[in-house]
Design a protein around this nucleic acid. Structure first.
Length: 549
RNA sequence: GGGCGAUUAGCUCAGUUGGAUAGAGCGUUGGUCUCCGGAACCAAAGGCCGUGGGUUCAAGUCCCGCAUCGCCCA
């Protein structure tokens, strides 16, 4: 709808008085927005205000001129008005919105899918938690965000690959092994001194116990054994938690593989002789300060150990080598200082840093009845993602994680997420969908079906609330588009809240099924369209749309 | 000390590439309910958009200073 208006305006621009160079006008951005105030119409444009300088005429005059040159007699346009400073306001006929109801029902699941991203290959890398412990609630937020972004990009036509980068190297794997080994010894009744900096969570003892049960002779094994078995078990747990959360990955990328494939060494060899690397105090440094980082970084320590930074450079070089047009990394906000460094690295490797987008995710504050739930990783006491899923369910968790923009801290109240009442945003939306289905079931029992065949009845939808609902449904594809473009899935939860609100309000004041069969059919069509849009949107967020609750 | 981000109603937050009278939920106050799902509904009150400048026809939105908070790095 909005696009049609843009088209209309664009076509009229060259006809303007004193339009001059048609190419300059063609490049002029035409913005059509939805006014907050209904008295300014369904849509409005401010082109005349912008053109005032270009054309050196008063905006009001331009607006009047332009409005006069728009085609009359359009079936979907009621009237066009020019307002004060130079806005042009468009008032649409009801039937303009009725058309979308039909479109929604005909397209079904495909309504809201677009193809503007076709041909663009995008990778979304997220979660990527170290395999040293179970996923915690912060990872859950990253997972929900990554899953939704992947779905949004897919819905807009992109070719999307999801990836989990596994930091399975180095001292932390060794620490994991030592921790498990120590617990295994402890369980067997030995006196131990628990390793300093070891992982102290209860899950370590659980794993040690499992290993001993599977193999009573395990104590004979070396450290590498405990590291390997520990990692396997933790990874299995992570996969299971993600599966319970509805998240799967196309690729699991192992940091170790970068070394076995010689990619890290190749990277270092490639850059060793170049100006951006230098040796100092026995270590190899990357001159990242030359690329906007605040200081230079060590790549190879004096003892020969390669740093994480070396791995990350090699990893991103490898990623870009796979031909992605855009690479999206989702990180915890505490890593934000790492962004300029990595971008500097890409630049030095002659890769376009613009192709890397790092989305930072802020902390989650877990609450119960408004009171903070203690969360300390230091002592190994943290709230796991699994615990949250078990308590409030996958749907409530995923939805709640996506109710705020990712760079804003999130308060997650377990009690609210569990509530079966309308103050729980997830319930509010799912309930709207269940209500739609309930109405449709009752209608079906009376031989009433909301089929496209009842299109002729749609003109009976003349109430302001019905118009508002239809208009909101029309906006859905634009919301998907904007959310995908801005990488902000929370726009969908906002939209869903609004749509569900309108529907509940309408439901509370109007009957879908009444004596007037024609009217009933039209309203059922509306209900069905609302149901489809809610389901499609929830689907993008990884949340189920229940038939009954 | 340096960097990044934030500051919008009592609370938690939206606010679409700068647009017209700044929105929602919760909470508060007052009212309503025999209904396809009451697992409610209607209405009201509530705002110096942290602060001071700047750009613009137009600033919650963009730029600069300051204050406060959070995080990262020293």
């Amino acid at each position: 709808m909005r696009e049609q208006l843009v088209e209309l305006i664009r076509n009229a621009l060259p006809l303007l008085e004193g339009a001059g160079d048609p190419e300059a006008l063609a490049a002029f951005p035409v913005l059509v927005s939805i006014p907050k105030n209904a008295q300014f119409g369904d849509y409005a444009t401010n082109v005349a205000l912008g053109l005032a300088k270009v054309l050196k005429r008063s905006p009001l005059h331009i607006a009047q001129d332009l409005a006069g040159r728009l085609p009359a007699n359009l079936t979907w346009l009621e009237r066009v008005e020019v307002a004060k400073p130079g806005f042009i306001n468009f008032f649409l006929k009801d039937q303009a919105f009725h058309g979308t109801l039909l479109q929604i029902i005909l397209r079904g699941e495909a309504y809201g899918r677009m193809d503007w991203g076709t041909g663009r290959k995008v990778q979304v890398e997220f979660v990527s938690a170290n395999p040293t412990g179970p996923l915690h609630i912060g990872h859950g937020r990253g997972a929900a965000l990554g899953g939704a972004l992947a779905a949004l990009l897919h819905a807009t036509g992109h070719t999307v690959e999801t990836e989990y980068y596994l930091n399975d190297m180095g001292t932390q794997m060794e620490t994991l092994g030592r921790s498990i080994q120590a617990r295994a010894l402890e369980i067997s009744g030995r006196e131990i001194t628990f390793p300093q900096n070891g992982y102290r969570g209860d899950y370590i003892s659980d794993i040690a116990r499992e290993i001993l049960q599977e193999n009573p002779e395990a104590l004979q094994e070396d450290l590498a054994f405990f590291s390997r078995r520990g990692q396997e078990k933790i990874l299995q747990g992570i996969r299971e938690d993600l599966a319970a959360f509805g998240i799967g990955f196309d690729h699991w990328f192992s940091e170790t593989s970068l070394y076995t494939r010689g990619l890290v060494d190749a990277l270092i060899e490639r850059l060793r002789g170049s100006e951006i690397f230098y040796e100092s105090e026995g270590a190899l440094w990357f001159k990242s300060s030359a690329y906007g980082d605040e200081k230079d970084r060590v790549v190879v320590r004096s003892n020969g150990a390669k740093t994480y930074f070396a791995s990350d450079m090699a990893y991103h070089l490898e990623k870009f080598g796979r031909g992605f047009d855009q690479v999206i990394d989702i990180w915890g906000a505490d890593h934000h200082g790492y962004v300029p460094r990595l971008k500097a690295a890409l630049k030095s490797l002659e890769l376009d840093p613009e192709k890397l987008t790092v989305v930072l995710v802020q902390l989650v504050n877990l609450l119960r009845e408004g009171q903070p739930v203690a969360m300390s990783t230091r002592a190994g006491e943290f709230v796991t993602l699994r615990a949250v899923i078990d308590e409030v369910g996958k749907d409530a968790a995923r939805y709640t994680f996506l109710t705020r923009r990712s760079d804003s801290p999130l308060d997650f109240d377990l009690e609210v997420a569990k509530k079966q009442s309308l103050e729980n945003p997830v319930f509010y939306v799912q309930y709207a969908h269940a209500r739609v289905q309930s109405v449709l079931r009752v209608a079906a029992g009376q031989e009433l079906e909301a089929s496209p065949l009842s299109f002729n009845s749609l003109h009976l939808l003349a109430l302001p609330e019905e118009r508002e609902l239809c208009k909101t449904l029309t906006e859905y594809p634009e919301v998907v588009s904007a959310a995908a473009q801005a990488l902000e899935p929370h726009r969908l939860t906002s939209y869903l809240g609004e749509l569900a609100g309108l529907f509940h309000h309408y439901y509370n004041h109007n009957r879908f099924i009444g004596d007037d069969t024609e009217l009933s059919l039209a309203r059922l069509l509306l209900a069905r369209a609302v149901g489809i849009v809610i389901k499609n949107a929830l689907n993008l967020l990884g949340v189920d749309a229940p038939e009954k609750m």
